[in-house]
């Protein structure tokens, strides 16, 4: 039997396997200027992927930076207001551009990652991240992208791009990231 030796491993098990009884701040493309309707808070989870060996929890994972816009990746992230999975006009515009790329690269499959800021509880943020990923996926499908090429996953608040407790940082973390699996 495999043994979990890190908390990431336990989270992995916690998401994919129902378990009973039961933070490094890389710079990246700034999000749009949408501001949430207010709110303060403290840390509150959701990880379904293991970080590479030797990587400390909380660092941006290899798979996140490999195809992301900061490395000239083809698909751009979209951003959300606090406690919302509604697609803003700016997010829809980005998704249209992403859909165009996908239609010109018909072999590409994409994993759509839903992320949240640190405020709120583990379980709620996991669910919110799933809602964000699903909203992005559904919009891409309406734009003609085959659902067979799209998968979704929620990381909740577990993979923040920025770890400071301020609105600027939280904006960067409330995102959907698109990971190109094959091209």
């Amino acid at each position: 039997m495999m043994r979990c030796v890190s908390k990431w491993c336990w989270w992995y098990g916690g998401i994919l396997v129902l378990v009973l009884i039961g933070s490094g701040c890389p710079k990246r493309t700034p999000p749009p200027s949408e501001l949430p309707p207010g709110g303060v808070g403290t840390p509150g989870i959701g990880e379904t992927g293991l970080p590479p060996a030797g990587q400390a929890p909380g660092e941006t994972t290899r798979k996140q930076v490999e195809f992301g816009p900061e490395r000239g990746g083809p698909l751009q992230d979209i951003y959300f207001a606090y406690d919302s999975f509604d697609l803003s006009a700016e997010a829809r515009e980005t998704l249209r551009a992403n859909a165009n790329w996908l239609q010109n690269n018909s072999q590409a499959r994409v994993e759509i990652e839903g992320h949240c800021d640190e405020r709120g509880t583990t379980e709620y943020n996991l669910a919110l991240g799933a809602k964000r990923a699903r909203a992005a996926r559904d919009y891409l499908v309406t734009l003609g992208v085959s659902p067979d090429r799209l998968s979704t996953i929620s990381y909740g608040e577990e993979l923040p791009l920025c770890r400071e407790s301020n609105e600027s940082c939280w904006q960067q973390n409330r995102r959907v990231h698109f990971l190109v699996l094959t091209r």
């Binding site: 039997m1 098990g13 998401i15 994919l16 396997v17 129902l18 378990v19 009973l20 039961g22 959701g46 379904t48 379980e123 996991l126 669910a127 799933a130 929620s154």
Partner: peptide, 12 residues
């Protein structure tokens, strides 16, 4: 450990 569900589960 026993896997209880193949669905993504957040709490039990």
């Amino acid at each position: 450990d026993t896997r209880l569900s193949s669905a993504v589960g957040y709490s039990g």
